[in-house]
């Protein structure tokens, strides 16, 4: 397995997948939430998982995180996995560094924890209590807690959804940096089409418990909202999600008003397919 930094892993030749899912079925009560779903994730790939509320994307992520009981079908996963949720979910009675090193068995756990905190820019808060952190800081601590485990698969369950717009932009940039430095396979569940297009090399659209569309995103980085390729892919993704762009036209002036920052991504117009929470 390659550990070298990867700028655009999607363009590399195919390797053995690090996640292999075949014939995944999960039912709750009346219907199948996951219906004969198959999925491969390449090592070091960045995949966004989109879909309307209730399409089963959260269930898929929970299955890959082994948070739900074993389903029907084949699921092959790497040993080193980490999850970041929408809420930071830090343990309030452990200081930030102890949260990051929780469960680590290495002799140099503290050094690793401090290094991870340094990487997310939170070294100065290593000794703080989690409840004294801001929303963005707490989410960075959660990222450090995932990062310190050197995961081969990083599962992100709408990790930026609860953050304010500016903090979200910074966090998206941070996740991209961390991903290119450590090259885990990332699966990002999101409602935000722009976020998917900014970060991922591949977008999966889920519908009725299965992968309805598998769209490569072969854009150069850093990406900008105004690029022609970006706009074309945005239309295509929205179409796959069943959103008529004409109906979103009313949102455009808002984007113009907030403006794109030079050198940054610009504020996303949050082309939200279906906010659920």
């Amino acid at each position: 397995m390659s550990h070298t930094p990867l700028r655009s892993p999607a363009r590399r030749p195919q390797q053995d997948p690090i996640v292999r899912v075949r014939g995944l079925v999960r039912s709750f009560g009346h219907g199948n939430v996951l219906d004969n779903l198959s999925l491969d994730l390449q090592p070091g790939s960045f995949t966004a998982l989109l879909g309307r509320s209730g399409c089963g994307k959260s269930t898929l992520l929970r299955t890959l995180a082994k948070l739900d009981p074993a389903p029907d079908g084949t699921v092959e996963l790497p040993d080193r996995r980490a999850v970041v949720f929408q809420e930071p979910r830090l343990v309030p009675w452990k200081r930030v560094l102890r949260n990051v090193t929780l469960g680590l068995r290495h002799a140099d756990a503290d050094a690793r924890g401090l290094a991870a905190l340094d990487e997310v820019g939170l070294l100065h808060r290593a000794n703080a209590w989690p409840l004294t952190l801001s929303g963005g800081e707490a989410q960075r601590a959660a990222l450090a807690r995932a990062l310190v485990r050197d995961p081969r698969l990083l599962l992100l369950d709408e990790p930026f959804a609860a953050l304010d717009a500016l903090t979200r932009l910074r966090m998206q940039g941070l996740v991209e940096t961390l991903w290119s430095a450590h090259a885990p396979a990332v699966l990002l569940v999101t409602h935000d089409v722009d976020e998917a297009l900014l970060l991922a090399d591949r977008a999966l659209v889920m519908a009725s418990g299965t992968i309805a569309a598998d769209i490569p995103i072969p854009l150069d980085r850093p990406r900008r909202h105004g690029d022609p390729g970006f706009i074309a892919l945005r239309s295509r993704l929205l179409a796959e999600l069943g959103v008529d762009e004409e109906h979103l036209a009313g949102r455009e002036p808002q984007r113009a008003a907030t403006g794109a920052k030079p050198g940054g991504y610009g504020l996303p117009a949050s082309a939200v397919a279906a906010p659920s929470r």
Partner: peptide, 27 residues
């Protein structure tokens, strides 16, 4: 329960989970 779920992804044994999370939480 959400914190317990998140911590359960960190590879703790059941006793570590009880000692580090559940009992301090019940203190």
């Amino acid at each position: 329960a959400k914190v317990v779920e998140a911590v359960s992804t960190l590879g703790l044994t059941r006793w570590e989970l009880i000692a580090h999370v559940i009992l301090p939480g019940a203190l």
